[in-house]
C-alpha cells in the first residue's frame, strides 16, 4: 500500500490547482467510519500507480477552508481534478472498482 499525498488549506493551490494530470482528493475526518473504510481502498489504488493519477487526502477538521470552498457537506467526498480543474464530485463510500472506473473516466 502506498502513502497518500496529504493536502492542506495552505498547500491546496500548489498541490492540486497547479497539478497536471488527474488528482483525486478525498475529503475525510477521523470521526467518520465510512472515511476510515475508504482509506485502505485509496492506498491500494495509489499503489497501482495509474499513469498520471495522484491520490490525496484532505482532513476537513484541520482544513475547513478548502472544504467550505467546495461546499463539502458530506464525507467522504471525492473531488476529481484534471489539470487543476474540478471535473467530478463523488459522495459516500464505494467499492474500489467503482472508484477506479470514475478515475479512468475523468
Amino acid at each position: 500500500m502506498a502513502d497518500l499525498k496529504q493536502v492542506t488549506d495552505a498547500s491546496f493551490s500548489v498541490d492540486v490547482e497547479k497539478s497536471s494530470g488527474v488528482f483525486v482528493l478525498d475529503f475525510w475526518a477521523t470521526w467518520c467510519g465510512p472515511c476510515r473504510m475508504m482509506e485502505p481502498v485509496l492506498k491500494e489504488i495509489a499503489a497501482e500507480n495509474m499513469p498520471g493519477v495522484t491520490i490525496g487526502q484532505l482532513n476537513v477538521d484541520e482544513n475547513p477552508q478548502t472544504a467550505m470552498k467546495f461546499e463539502v457537506m458530506s464525507i467522504p467526498t471525492f473531488l476529481i481534478f484534471k489539470n487543476g480543474v474540478q471535473v467530478k464530485r463523488l459522495t459516500g463510500a464505494m467499492p474500489k472498482a467503482k472508484l477506479v472506473d470514475e478515475i479512468k473516466g475523468a
Partner: peptide, 17 residues
C-alpha cells in the same frame, strides 16, 4: 443535493451543520 445538504450519515456529516 446529495453531499450538498442531503445525507444518510449523521456521524459523518453532523459537524458540517
Amino acid at each position: 443535493y446529495t453531499g450538498r445538504g442531503v445525507s444518510w450519515c449523521a456521524t459523518c456529516d453532523a459537524a458540517f451543520y
